[in-house]
Design a protein around this nucleic acid. Sequence first.
DNA 1: CTGAAAGCGCTTACAG
DNA 2: CTGAAAGCGCTTACAG
Lengths: 355, 355
Amino acid sequence: MPVPRAKINPSMSDVARHAGVSIATVSNVINRPEKVAAATAERVRASIGELGFVRNDVARSLATGSASTVGMVLADLDNSLFVDMAHGAQQGSDASGLRLLLGNAACDLRRQDDYLDLFDEARVRGVLLAPMEDSRSGIERIRAHGRLIVVLNFQQPDVDCCTVLVDNEQVGYLAARHLIEGGRSRLAFLAGREYYQPVQARRAGVRRAVQSAPGVTLEEIDAGGLEFPNGLSVARDLSARRLGDLPDGVVAVADELGNGLIEGLRLETEARVPQDISVVGCEDNRTAQGGPVALTTVQLSGVEMGQAAAELLIEEMTADPGVHRHRTVVLHPSLIARDSTFGASSTELLRAKGA
Amino acid sequence: MPVPRAKINPSMSDVARHAGVSIATVSNVINRPEKVAAATAERVRASIGELGFVRNDVARSLATGSASTVGMVLADLDNSLFVDMAHGAQQGSDASGLRLLLGNAACDLRRQDDYLDLFDEARVRGVLLAPMEDSRSGIERIRAHGRLIVVLNFQQPDVDCCTVLVDNEQVGYLAARHLIEGGRSRLAFLAGREYYQPVQARRAGVRRAVQSAPGVTLEEIDAGGLEFPNGLSVARDLSARRLGDLPDGVVAVADELGNGLIEGLRLETEARVPQDISVVGCEDNRTAQGGPVALTTVQLSGVEMGQAAAELLIEEMTADPGVHRHRTVVLHPSLIARDSTFGASSTELLRAKGA
DNA sequence: CTGAAAGCGCTTACAG
DNA sequence: CTGAAAGCGCTTACAG
């Protein structure tokens, strides 16, 4: 009698038949081995191995009514801040045996909604959303279906759900304060994308710092965007001014913008960074360290955000029904001083030595 | 009579009851609307809207036997090359209505296997895998279950599946050739992580270029890794040499390594880049442009790889059973000249003007 | 054009 | 400790 050829995708009933037990027993071996006699379990496990059985998670999810998966929708994986959030969320999920699936919206709100719907339809255990702009309709839709959702790095007005935020007002404040304490008095705030919530908050923080410092002035410059080239072109505009008319301290609302400015100043002007102009970025992206000058910046820990979000989600998942109260975790930023503002950095020391 | 409160997750049978039809009709309205009378369809759609029905994709997958989802496992999202692959795969999937889910292995082979299993258990339509190291067991396990898989950027020995590769030997060759053609004769190859397949191939290409160029010498330096700090510390080592004993052209096997080297040379030596030492990177990562000097590099288009992989997968998905032949697509790299090798870059011009 | 019914592959009380 | 059976929410021939 020929040995039956192995099915490509053997099911539990194939295993059951092969081991001479019922499918309930196979299920028990997998999910509650303590309920099964050792010898039986052994036999079943052998069959599983022989047939190459892989539990069909789709059927399992349908039967149990929920998956062990959490879906994370990220606005822009090209920004390392979002990659960091994914790292954090993964760490936060691992502990609870949840599995993290990622969807990259790639700055496209329609695609973001698609992913939200995808995870909704997949009946994931919960959703983590790190949006860039208002996502109210998507969030409400998914919540209406009873899906759990935690929003990262965005304060969605009028929507009641758990949220992880960074105090972005404080980000701006710390950046400007750092410049002022270093003796800078003609500050500039470089920004773009006004509709982007963190930009507004950071601007408010910069203003507060300036207002509380007598004699310090603030110039607000629209860079037209948050990328490296935007910084470059601002430098080009500034190059028309005399040195004394340039700001002596700049807060760039994003690291890449700051890097572009520094590179542009080097190319187009005689102003030196940091001697003539100190520059602070925001976010502490991966690019903050590898740029033309190591960039002083205000750190937003994406990893911490991701972890906190996962924790909030798990909290909500495990809460007794009706007991859960949504809450908002606000993380505090911190300034990281590098070469682009003050201090005899190693760069300067070595240059001086060489001269 | 009180209106029944809306169920959180109404099912098709709820919709059917509400619309006064059978669930088969509801299903048809959703999947083959042309088979349903316009009036009936309208009524069903109204019920769907009223109840807030969302198709349960888990049940659908179980019933149809396969999902419309493809799972992509990335070795390291911190490396922008992998993010680019995700972009490409997304573009490639969109056209066919497939939905791309991402799993980040974060350089952890165990986690990579977990994601492979996760997608396997989820019965995704296909898997895209961009590994860093040998992943034979994972690939074979998933293939044994009949799951389709395409491997990116890694030539997995002895495993028969569709693959997208970049000609990494050519990457090394182009980089070295560029230096040689610019008149450099004391080349160095900077690498680390010898077990990493592309590193080996690029080394071979560099050697070939050098061997075919009389009078050109090659020094192979182990940087101990592929990151920025590794480049820095190589520069520190080199700083002990006299200028004339330094290489005059360096191929760094990865962009970040090249950036680190350039920064280190600036900090620790008097050698100028590119005047005294030309440096070429490999990969054209996002960091290649924002670094201390805009880096000449050899481009590997991650986006193209991702697209090609998605296309191969779709080809295999749609092939008649038994007809499909696995194939390997090899993409060709191209050199991108920036400031770190030769040529009067804008940087130099402007500096000269300022002097 | 519409509906009754079987089936996808699991899980889970419930008996025994 | 083990098994028969119902059920999760869809899809899909097959009748009508």
